[in-house]
Amino acid sequence: MRMRITNFALLLLMSSLSGPLLAQTTAEQIRQATLAFLDNFANEQTGAGYTVSFEPGSIDSRLALAECKQPLSVEFSGDPWKSTSPSLLVACEGHRPWRMFVTASVSIHGPALVATRPLTRGERITSDLVTHQSVEINASRRGVITESRQAVGMEVRRSINAGSLITPDMLSAPDAIERGDHVIITAKTGGFSVRSRGKALANAGVGEQVLVENLSSSRTVKANVVAAGHVEIQM
């Protein structure tokens, strides 16, 4: 009986000693994996004309996870283009899988549109009203506009100061149809379509519905705006 107790105690002692000796994934390995991922992201954006600076968040040096037999997987779990502190998902997909999140500080600088002069509500954007300026793009949670063609022709929704960054929510597409406009009504059914002339009874943009009067039948119908002066009805 004494021999059994001694052997059991010996097994417990060996188990406690072998635990710390098991292979582990250390905090430094996780940090190096995140650094490599962020460095690759920065290089990709450099080719597209953006400058990226970054720094992984602190990781507890005492952290020790199961050994990963393959390279650690790292990806953004938050959008780095809309936050300067996106989180990263670090994962091991091996025999003993695990996942953890690491914060990072990321700054993306690049060209975005700003107003060349004060813009008033309802004003239509033309190419001379905007210019490119280097800004910290991901500091704006509302996004940015990087191409002039994305803004030209749009209407200002609220006043914009000269030199201010122009964000998508500041602009709206102008109405493609205004009340009283004569429009082409296309009625579709299966592979056939019939056209007629009508008159819009309200303002509407592309993708919106509008009431139109069929000038031939004098009937009022609800149609979808597909382009300036064109609406469609699905029969």
Rank of each mutant, 00 (worst) to 15 (best):
V106A: 06
I125K: 02
E93Q: 15
G94C: 03
A115Y: 04
A115I: 03
C92I: 03
C92W: 02
G94D: 06
A104G: 05
P111N: 12
L113D: 08
E93F: 13
A104T: 14
T116Y: 07
W98K: 01
S127F: 00
T120P: 00
V106S: 05
L113H: 07
A104C: 03
I108E: 07
A104N: 08
T103R: 10
E93S: 15
R117C: 01
R124C: 06
S127N: 00
S107A: 15
R117A: 11
F101S: 07
S127T: 00
P118G: 02
F101L: 08
V114N: 05
G122Q: 11
M100A: 03
T126A: 08
A112R: 05
I125F: 00
V102W: 10
T103K: 13
V114M: 09
T120R: 14
F101E: 09
E93H: 14
A104R: 09
T116N: 09
F101R: 13
F101G: 01
V114S: 10
T103L: 05
R121A: 12
H95R: 15
A115T: 04
L129V: 03
A104Q: 11
W98F: 09
L113C: 09
R121L: 07
T116Q: 08
A104Y: 11
T126Q: 10
R121C: 04
P118C: 05
R124E: 14
S107N: 15
W98R: 01
L113W: 09
